[in-house]
Design a protein around this nucleic acid. Structure first.
Length: 111
DNA sequence: TTAGTGACAGGCA
DNA sequence: CTGCCTGCCACTA
């Protein structure tokens, strides 16, 4: 429909994020790698900033490589945490989630 | 056009 | 475990 003026990396990033199922998470670096740039974690950040509202992305299912919510703003932090908890994700006392349990691995051969 | 930015990642002390 | 530094690159003004 729109937005095909974006870079392939950005388009892939959007598509990947949309495929994260409920109750699962992905990391910035993981998404960047699958979108074609293993060093593009910060571009994933940019995508979330500029595209989450336009593309209905499950932005809350994207966390950092430590399994931690990376938002600095307290209110936003707890908003994301609640969204994840509503999907059945359990946070540990250190504020992290178990990536071995919740990390999603897209099957790129599927689409 | 250039310079600055950033929900990161990984290495090192 | 923590904190600091560097690389990285699409986007924005």
């Amino acid at each position: 429909m729109e937005g095909l003026q974006l870079q392939p990396f950005t388009q892939k990033t959007i598509k990947i994020i949309k495929q994260i199922p409920r109750g699962n998470v992905m990391t910035y670096g993981q998404i960047a790698t699958m979108a074609g740039s293993s060093r593009g974690a910060r571009q994933v950040v940019r995508v979330l900033h500029s595209m989450s509202s336009k593309h209905q992305l499950p932005w809350h299912r994207v966390i950092n490589s430590k399994g931690e919510i990376s938002l600095r703003d307290e209110e936003s932090y707890f908003t994301q945490k609640k969204l994840l908890e509503d999907e059945g994700i359990v946070f540990e006392e250190n504020g992290r989630v178990d990536l071995n349990t919740y990390l999603f691995f897209p099957n790129d051969t599927l689409g």
